[in-house]
Write a protein that binds this DNA or RNA. Sequence first.
DNA 1: CGTTTTATCTTGACAGTGTCAACATAGCCT
DNA 2: AGGCTATGTTGACACTGTCAAGATAAAACG
Lengths: 201, 201
Amino acid sequence: MANAVQSYHHGDLRSALIEAATARLSEHGVDSLSLRKLAEDAGVSRTAPYHHFKDKSALLSAIAAKGFSDWHSAAKRIFEQEEKTPSARFREFVHEYIGYAADNPEMYELMFGRTIWQNQAATNDLKDVAFPCFQFQVTMTRYWQDKELLPNNQDALRLAQVTWGTLHGIARLLIDGIYADSGHIDEMCNCAADLFMQKRG
Amino acid sequence: MANAVQSYHHGDLRSALIEAATARLSEHGVDSLSLRKLAEDAGVSRTAPYHHFKDKSALLSAIAAKGFSDWHSAAKRIFEQEEKTPSARFREFVHEYIGYAADNPEMYELMFGRTIWQNQAATNDLKDVAFPCFQFQVTMTRYWQDKELLPNNQDALRLAQVTWGTLHGIARLLIDGIYADSGHIDEMCNCAADLFMQKRG
DNA sequence: CGTTTTATCTTGACAGTGTCAACATAGCCT
DNA sequence: AGGCTATGTTGACACTGTCAAGATAAAACG
């Protein structure tokens, strides 16, 4: 399957494209991602990808979908560590979130950036994977509210939007190199966690 | 100056380009902004803009610089309303920030997006205008810490990064249409403000 | 005033891009 | 064997940003 002989038909062009695109994305960014180059790298003609993806953003959606799937698993794994205190898990989640974004900036940018979300560019497949991720954020928020880590006089959805917004915003400031450098990631995470949980001097 | 006669020389092409670009930006987004179209709209040939801007991102930087300048003024105006309580000003700032982003999504995206900040694309002129804006965020944070609105056991810079990150993140979630719709802006702003200031039930 | 320098604008060209239409081949199903 | 469908191909179009070389107007200078 992977080592398909070089014949008229590629064998598994769809997977090959996603794989190559993911690699190129991480290395050179979403802007330098051209369907033509990908096709050439896969040893296939310019328009071959169109038999597997409606257009460019469908390819990007597929990549992002994989990212959401992975991210969802990671979040769940942290959240469900029942041997740790809720507080510890919350802190870990914050660090993990920002860490993921900092370590995979281009992937994060793709997943949570406007490229695939604006103009209804997001595939239904993508939405099916992404929405449960968003919902999970609410689930976690409600749990942390129950544990009195987060204020429980706030609507869970709003609070989830705000807490996630914070992580998202810090991630983006870091990724885009605005006003924050990667040398102080841990400090920023701790500051954010302190702010949310009510531990104050 | 504005109504230059149609001659070989345009008269004030630089301003005309910035103006047209700003208008087109607000209306159709940064992606549909092409130097060629702008030139055509200005009644000038494709390459004329290159005598006023090194390249496309220099034009974008110029537009963003204007945005930062305006934004800085607005922030200052709110912050310096001494007849209002610090708490009221803080709340107003939060609403104003998110409101600006929601009302001018494309401009916000340009100013705080990766388009002009990645790859050292930002002009020195832009940095000169933007950095004081960033610094002002720290100044305000320190003030609010002094007034005991924000926790003063945190480093002002970190806290500024986190609070601004929150606003930035919420703004982006809204703009990009992820997980948040514009119908609940005020609720989200209040939730964020409540969370930062220590008013909890 | 004339001349020269400089700022500005022009056409021509190049290498890219995404995407459509029309055609070719290979594999599978009946 | 014949045909349908999935997949791949070449050709073409309309865009894009940007460079090089030449034209023209305005300003600077003698």
